[in-house]
Write a protein that binds this DNA or RNA. Structure first.
Lengths: 186, 186
DNA sequence: GGTTTTTGGTATCGACTCGATACTTGTAAC
DNA sequence: GTTACAAGTATCGAGTCGATACCAAAAACC
């Protein structure tokens, strides 16, 4: 009748996953937060690769995130590129070292391995249930959701391609699958 | 085809929930970890209310957990009671202050609110999928699982009641719904 | 029965996170 | 042009975390 069981399961999964994340990060001389940020940067689009976006994604404060990003830069995982239009913002690009680290650690998530035990139908069901929960959560609170442009409310078709209704910028194929900080459910 | 979407959704939910946890904890002058520990202690059985069990649950090191528990004790949320049989172990009992805090913060989980948007069938489906995932995870790695005695492999019936096959101790009604560190899936 | 090993728990140290505040610089609003 | 605001950095104190060392009680061993 209540949600207690789900909450417990979720918390348990979360704790195990978190511990695993820490272990993996440590194996590469990184902090857990830094690894999460790195994975985020590897799959966000070019509107969402700024320190501010990472801050929003991690739900942390900009001071903290700034420091973590400086660490990542020191370790040669990312480089900062100043935005040509707005000189205040910088874009974070993964170096080849950063990209290879992401690749190495991609399949190490405990969850990823555990999900191998589900068949396709179950995975689809789980995905849609989780998505529904997340959307519900976004409705009650006003948090950024960070989804792919391809499923976003702001996606528009233009001659021969796509367009973001918010920024009016063209979206190419590669943009569509990446996640964006402005994602809104239709 | 792959699990990427599920992993993303899961990570997003986790990050939001974590941020929320921090905020709630801070509102009560606690650390997030301390609040999680407190909630754990509120629903574990009498075999699982020791510092070692909390350590296992949080997947942290005993040194760290020891400090967190000392903080909780200082703040009057829990009290330590030495085990009469094994003088090394201490049991952590919630004070009335601790219990009331747990009650206050119980319904504040973002997830809890978001799950309100699912109907009963969906919730049941989500629960069983998450459980299957967790069991799968336990099979590949050997982590403690922390489930309720009522669903445990070690549960045995005895004359007029139940019994834990591992410790041979009697289990009363109230024990059955609480979570135990020795939980094993049948 | 006495020695060794293991286990539960604490104490302490350094590296790091995190939040808060203050600050700089660039952009937008009026 | 002045003011407000936004992006990002710097810094400080409180606290987490992992590692190590340590103590005491229990268990295993001979």
């Amino acid at each position: 009748m209540s949600h207690e069981n789900i909450l417990e399961l979720f918390e348990r999964l979360t704790l195990l996953e978190k511990a695993n994340e820490r272990a993996i990060a440590q194996a590469h001389s990184l902090q857990a937060v830094q690894l999460v940020a790195l994975h985020y940067l590897a799959r966000c689009n070019r509107f969402s690769d700024t320190p501010a976006a990472v801050t929003e994604y991690l739900s942390a404060t900009k001071g903290t995130v700034s420091q973590s990003l400086i660490q990542l830069e020191k370790k040669g995982m990312v480089t900062k590129v100043q935005d040509p239009e707005d000189k205040r913002v910088s874009h974070l690009k993964l170096t080849s070292l950063g990209r290879s680290l992401v690749k190495q650690t991609n399949q190490l998530a405990l969850l990823d391995q555990a999900l191998g035990g589900l068949d396709c139908e179950e995975k689809a069901a789980l995905e849609s249930l989780l998505r529904k929960t997340l959307i519900e959560l976004q409705n009650t609170h006003k948090h950024a959701m960070f989804g792919p442009c391809s499923q976003c409310k702001h996606l528009q078709k233009s001659k021969g391609g796509h367009l973001c209704g918010l920024t009016k910028e063209p979206l190419y194929e590669s943009d569509l699958v990446q996640i964006c900080r402005e994602y809104t459910h239709p």
